[in-house]
Amino acid sequence: MRRLAVFASGNGTNFEAIVSACERGELAAGVVLLVCDRPGARVAERAAAHGVEAFVFSPKEYASKADYEREIVRRLDAAGVELVCLAGYMRIAGETLLGAYGGRIVNIHPSLLPAFRGAHAIEQALEYGVKVFGVTVHWVDATLDGGRIIAQRAFGYEGGDAAELEAKIHAVEYPLYIDTIRKLLEDERLAKRT
């Protein structure tokens, strides 16, 4: 059984999708740690409901990014984490985290990168009148939604509001992320990094 950590900052629907896929046996893995940078975020409740250990912290309580990332790395190491899955984690990974887990951190983003990076990708795409939307899974580096693209899935969209589009994106991103995580866990190159 491979050991995953999920980083999230909000509601945690992607966290829920990953944990549920593990519980159903769709992934030969288990989520052993949630990292959340927003006390009170719904994702912490989801972790508790599934019996997943959670490290919930407020970055303001640390002197620097390096300080809280050292604590994250300590907890990842203690849990034996092999792959880190960002799922709505709204912070750019710093040198400390990348130094310890670089090449083992993936992210899912609600656009066809490199278009529409950042926290407001859906709104930006709607503002530009995009007709083909999509989702990207990519390796994480020190840039905003940068890193080499692993998988993408596109879909057409003819209109509606941001909430309707977000629902359609979720319908695409959950299976794409699960399938991509499965393939990464089966990849011997990942095993050599751990």
Rank of each mutant, 00 (worst) to 15 (best):
A142M: 03
A151C: 14
H138A: 09
E158K: 03
H138R: 10
P175H: 01
E164D: 09
V130P: 01
F133R: 00
K183L: 11
E166V: 10
V137G: 07
G147F: 07
G134C: 06
R153V: 04
P175F: 01
I178E: 06
K168C: 14
A125L: 00
W139L: 14
A162S: 13
E173F: 04
K183I: 05
K183P: 03
I178C: 08
G147M: 03
R153N: 08
P175W: 02
A154C: 03
I181M: 06
G159V: 07
A162N: 12
Q152E: 05
E158H: 08
A171E: 15
E158F: 06
L176T: 05
L176K: 00
Y157M: 08
V140M: 13
Y177R: 04
A163F: 11
R148W: 13
G159T: 05
G146E: 04
G159L: 10
G156F: 01
I122E: 12
R153K: 15
Y128A: 11
G134Y: 02
K168S: 14
I122L: 15
A167P: 13
E164H: 05
A142H: 06
A162D: 11
L176Y: 02
V140R: 14
I149Q: 02
V135S: 01
E173S: 02
G134W: 01
G156S: 08
A154D: 03
L165Q: 04
E164T: 11
A125F: 00
